[in-house]
């Protein structure tokens, strides 16, 4: 099993100071698969990505990437591992002071000694894969949101990583761009033979492309399964999430004292 499994997470918990974010997560991400992690905002999905990338250390549990324990890695080992990872940040995080071409070429120039002509060919190939070869001279500020996301995608796959992580790739995109990005994520995973971890709250799009889905709520895994399982699920949480109902196990209201009480006593604070 472990040879099949690129990322194995057992009983991982995490807390900022005293505020618990994750409490005992178990997760397996098989090689070559596209796994989606879904949940409402603020449930600790992004934290999970940071833990896998080694930017945060878990307060408990074990986290293996390619058979190596991430929390016990030295700085150099961590950087060696990250060279084999690609990550797409929520808003792209493109370097705004250099052009699209240089953004994609960035990692090749930093981490390899390839000649400039070869880098040029590789960059144009990557940009072609996301359909933006014609835009390589533009600056990031001249791109639309969806284009910026695609450039960031090209940058994430620049060094053909074994693991690609996406943090909310669909956030703030129109439906067309969303579909484009979704199809790209799927195609790139299959074409590169990589493993993909997709964190999103966009259920419909994720169910279309994922091989396996985890639902996270309040730092716990509440449901998991293939997209077919999820669509057929009778679990009230999953049902609420998949069909976007306002109230259910996840409440519309932030926990508060009853309204009458607050309006009586709370005026003084306003």
């Amino acid at each position: 099993m472990s040879a099949e499994c690129l990322v194995r997470i057992t009983g991982v918990s995490f807390a900022y100071d005293d505020r618990p974010i994750l409490g005992g997560i178990d997760m397996e991400i098989p090689r070559g698969k596209l796994v989606a992690i879904m949940g409402n905002s603020g449930c600790g999905k992004t934290t999970l990505l940071r833990l896998i990338g080694g930017q945060l250390k878990p307060t408990g549990g074990e986290l293996l990437v390619d058979g190596q324990s991430v929390p016990r890695m030295t700085h150099d080992e961590l950087y060696a591992m990250r060279r084999r990872m690609g990550m797409l940040f929520q808003f792209g995080a493109l370097f705004t002071d250099i052009s699209v071409f240089d953004n994609v070429a960035y990692l090749m120039r930093e981490h390899t000694d390839l000649p400039e002509e070869m880098i040029r060919d590789m960059v144009l190939m990557k940009l072609n894969a996301v359909g933006l070869r014609g835009a390589h001279r533009l600056m990031p500020a001249e791109l639309s949101g969806g284009m910026a996301r695609r450039v960031a995608l090209a940058r994430a796959i620049a060094l053909d990583p074994m693991l690609i992580m996406y943090d909310e790739p669909f956030a703030g995109l129109d439906p067309i761009s969303m579909g484009v990005i979704g199809q790209l994520i799927r195609k790139l995973n299959d074409a590169l033979g990589a493993t993909t971890l997709l964190v999103t709250h966009d259920v419909q799009e994720a169910l279309l492309i994922a091989d396996y889905v985890y639902f996270v709520s309040d730092g716990q895994i509440v449901a998991q399964g293939t997209p077919e399982d999820i669509r057929a699920s009778t679990d009230p949480f999953v049902h609420q999430f998949v069909f976007g109902e306002a109230d259910g196990p996840v409440h519309f209201h932030y926990p508060a004292v009853p309204f009458e009480e607050e309006s009586m006593s709370g005026m003084g604070h306003a």
Partner: peptide, 16 residues
């Protein structure tokens, strides 16, 4: 601004 737009985090994740 590089920090606010996650460019520094991105760099760190890219092993730079």
């Amino acid at each position: 601004l590089m920090k606010a737009t996650e460019q520094l985090t991105a760099m760190d994740m890219m092993a730079v």
